[in-house]
């Protein structure tokens, strides 16, 4: 299974024009400063927005092909999407949140065990910590039995300790998954630790030079957050 993306979309500030692919079992990290178009790329893959031109295909299934007039709505794209926050349904318990993705309670139990959240099954999202919430969100995304997993800054709202723990968990999970995983992050440490490939993006386009420029600044080790480094010059 592989994800192929070739998209063009006119945005307010710049044109998003990018192509990449990611094969099964690999994790591609999209890194770049805020407002570079990373989340828009994820939304285009998920079908939450339409590109002006382009092709998005997962394995043999074409999700978007503007030339042929093909566009599948998000409901028909088998993908898991973990948002930064707010993706869980506050009126449902952890178990019902996972079942919501279309699986039965037996399968949900298996997933909850895998993510170590079985003891939280009767709780509602507001009764969970940030880390627990993101574990539930991951379990919910995988409950969809996705062909692609999209992670849009899933750890950015967490404290450092939780972040490191979840990062390790995701690394071992990634090795068990046989689907392409796309991760959006600000954190180059995170990208380097988790990904098989890093795609630097600036103003909606691939920016390999930007990464080398950034990495020279990053050598200082103290600087791991892209936004901070850029503002630091």
């Amino acid at each position: 299974m592989a994800l192929k993306v070739k998209i063009f979309k006119k945005l307010k500030e710049f044109d998003l024009d990018i192509s990449f692919s990611c094969s099964s079992g690999r994790l591609l990290a999209l890194v770049g400063p805020s407002g570079a178009g990373k989340t828009t790329i994820m939304r285009l893959i998920a079908g939450l927005e339409r590109p002006d031109r382009g092709l998005i295909a997962c394995n043999k299934s074409i999700w978007t092909d503007t030339e042929k007039g093909i566009w599948l709505p998000p409901q028909k794209r088998k993908l898991g999407y973990v948002f930064q926050e707010y993706s869980l349904f506050p009126h449902l318990t952890v178990e019902r949140n996972i079942i919501f993705a279309g699986i039965d309670s037996y399968e949900a139990r298996g997933l909850m065990k895998l993510f170590g959240i079985l003891h939280l099954r009767r709780r509602r999202p507001h009764q969970l910590s940030g880390g627990e919430r993101q574990r539930v969100a991951l379990a919910q995304a995988l409950a969809r039995k996705p062909g692609v997993l999209l992670l849009d800054e899933p750890f950015s709202a967490l404290d450092v300790a939780t972040r490191v723990k979840l990062r390790n968990d995701l690394k071992s999970l990634k090795n068990q998954l046989s689907i392409p995983v796309i991760l959006v992050t600000h954190d180059l440490n995170e990208a380097r630790f988790l990904s098989d490939e890093i795609l630097p993006i600036e103003q909606g386009k691939k920016a390999p030079d930007w990464l080398s420029r950034f990495l020279s600044t990053w050598q200082s080790e103290a600087c791991t957050d892209i936004t901070w480094c850029l503002s630091a010059g």
């Binding site: 079908g47 998000p74 409901q75 993908l79 707010y86 993705a101």
Partner: peptide
């Protein structure tokens, strides 16, 4: 809006999202 989009990504139609997510919230 992200909650609604999350329901779409999880396979819910607009109508299902309306009575499963929007109404209870």
């Amino acid at each position: 809006l992200r909650m609604i989009e999350s329901a779409y990504v999880l396979g819910c139609s607009r109508l299902e999202t309306f009575y499963k997510v929007i109404i209870p919230n």
